[in-house]
Write a protein that binds this DNA or RNA. Structure first.
Length: 464
RNA sequence: GCUCGCGUGGCGAAACUGGUAAACGCAACGGUCUUUCAAACCGUCUCCCUCACGGAUUGCGGGUUCAAAUCCCGCCGCGAGCACCA
């Protein structure tokens, strides 16, 4: 029989869902879907000071936007504190954990001594075998794990391979704080066990924590899940990802005009590969995803490539849908022009932000604000030609790009001009810019009345 | 500092368990097309020697091997973890 796969994404709601978290969620989601398993969401909100409802909402919204639906109800870790404490009690009863009465001052001494000797901070285990009857009055104890002191704790990681650490490096970690609340190490293990998580796929910043977690699994006699620690994403300069590099909320990527499919596709390719494939649909990703194709080294975020991938997905998006998104961004009503002009617009933009900027002239109200370069093109001679051309265009009956092109070309030929000499001023008048989609397409989309109106806006200004 | 992990073109990467390094893609550059900007298409794209010929090259230095990106040792760089945070 095959094991039913269960993965989870377990963010702490102390900040927003950032790009690295999104990738972790994506990998968990893909792995679960690939195996027909379950993808669970657990909010690790045990830090009551730093957890906020706003962050929870942003995480849920971010995952939803990305299309990474989780199965079942969201698990809130804080609500399970009693269960975590129960496990600590069981370890205590089994002699696998003990009460530690060391005061903060004592711990501070150990810290200072360790630092002076160039050792990592390790609790020295002074209450490990001591009779609780010796407990000093007035100190509420913490519960510590009686961790193995010799040998090694080893981990077979799906991405990182075999990794081990000497148990001497690990001290007796706190399981339950003096106020009775569980620590992260305990909560994670208990929750992953209770939720039936079979595969823990998370950032490799947790790799060394895993050794401590394994000690808890061992103490409880629970079977460990399979671990896969994926490399973190770095900034373009190879350094740790920061806000400056793009360690932004997923929300910010949405704001910058990236499509969720594009972001997922890009994030998937960052550190994972499948032959020559670059553009990978969601269905293909589910069919192809595997943990062993994940690289071990961190990769750098590259906005140029994200733009390229995004441009691809934008071109695949129906014009009506893009028109709706653009209208929303511009805060303008769609009159049909955006959709009709979209074919020409979307080939010229890499993200929705650019697309909206390029599309703005279609919904702009007359008279248009002219870009300085457009203004410069509209010298008196050019305005004169536009006025003359406007008269010809008024006579055009069937208003489509073919007849319009014929009309404008004819005008240029008759006046011994290259097409560009009339086309560029015309573009300036119609779009307020020096570049745009094909001019005749623009005229057709604008319609006759609007085209003539925009021309007269610039020609009337000169004659008066 | 200690422990763990990672270093292949400007970037993402490929190279199946040692067997032609850099396939494929992004960016960049040159060209075609053209009413602008794009798109599309063709070409160049690790480094050195003006081109070619040739040589070097997988962070650096050694080693094992007929053969090393891949295995071993030592450095260097980057990242992560080292709390009664998560």
């Amino acid at each position: 029989m095959t094991q039913k796969i269960v993965t989870r994404f377990a963010p702490s709601p102390t900040g927003y869902l950032h790009i690295g978290g999104a990738r972790t969620a994506l990998f968990n989601w893909l792995f679960a879907r690939h195996h027909g398993g379950t993808f669970l969401l657990r909010i690790e909100d045990t830090d009551r000071q730093r957890s906020t409802q706003g962050a929870i909402d942003a995480i849920l919204a971010g995952l939803t936007w990305l299309g990474l639906e989780w199965d079942g109800d969201v698990v809130y870790q804080f609500s399970r504190a009693a269960r975590h404490a129960e496990i600590a009690r069981r370890l205590l009863e089994a002699g696998k954990a003990y009460y530690c009465y060391s005061s903060p001052a004592e711990l501070e001494e150990m810290r200072i001594a360790a630092k002076a000797e160039g050792r990592p901070m390790r609790y020295d285990g002074r209450w490990r075998d001591r009779d609780p009857a010796d407990a000093p009055a007035g100190i509420v104890p913490v519960v510590r794990l009686k961790a193995p002191q010799e040998g090694f704790t080893s981990l077979r990681d799906c991405v990182q391979g075999d990794v081990k650490v000497a148990n001497q490096q690990l001290d007796d970690m706190v399981l339950l704080r003096s106020d009775g609340t569980p620590t992260y190490m305990l909560s994670v293990v208990v929750d992953d066990h209770d939720m039936g998580i079979t595969h823990v796929i998370r950032g490799d910043d947790h790799l060394t924590n895993t050794f401590r977690q394994i000690q808890i699994y061992d103490a409880m006699g629970w079977t460990q899940p399979t671990f896969a620690h994926i490399p973190l994403i770095h900034g373009a300069d190879g350094a740790k990802l920061s806000k400056r590099h793009g360690a932004l909320a997923v929300d910010a990527y949405r704001e910058m005009g990236y499509l969720p499919q594009a972001l997922c596709n890009y994030l998937l390719r960052l550190g994972w590969s499948h032959g020559d494939d670059e553009i990978i649909s969601r269905d293909q990703a589910i069919a192809w995803f595997s943990l062993d194709a994940i690289g071990k080294s961190p990769s750098r975020l590259d906005f140029a490539k994200l733009d390229h991938v995004n441009a691809h997905y934008m071109r695949e998006t129906p014009d009506a849908e893009l028109a709706r998104l653009v209208a929303e961004r511009l805060g303008a009503a769609e009159t049909g022009r955006l959709e009709r002009g979209m074919a020409g617009l979307k080939a010229r933009a890499q993200n929705l932000k650019e697309l909206a900027e390029h599309a703005a002239f279609y919904v702009a109200k007359r008279p248009l604000a002219l870009h300085p370069k457009a203004e410069a093109l509209l010298d008196p001679a050019a305005r004169g030609h536009l006025a003359a051309l406007g008269k010809l265009l008024r006579e055009v009956d069937s208003w489509n790009h073919a007849t319009l092109e014929a009309c404008v070309r004819e005008y240029a030929t008759q006046h011994g001009m290259k097409l560009g000499a009339i086309a560029q001023p015309l573009r300036a008048a119609l779009t307020g810019s020096v570049n745009s989609p094909g001019l005749f397409e623009v005229m057709e989309v604008l319609d006759k009345e609007e085209t003539l109106g925009r021309i007269s806006d610039v020609t009337a200004a000169t004659s008066s």
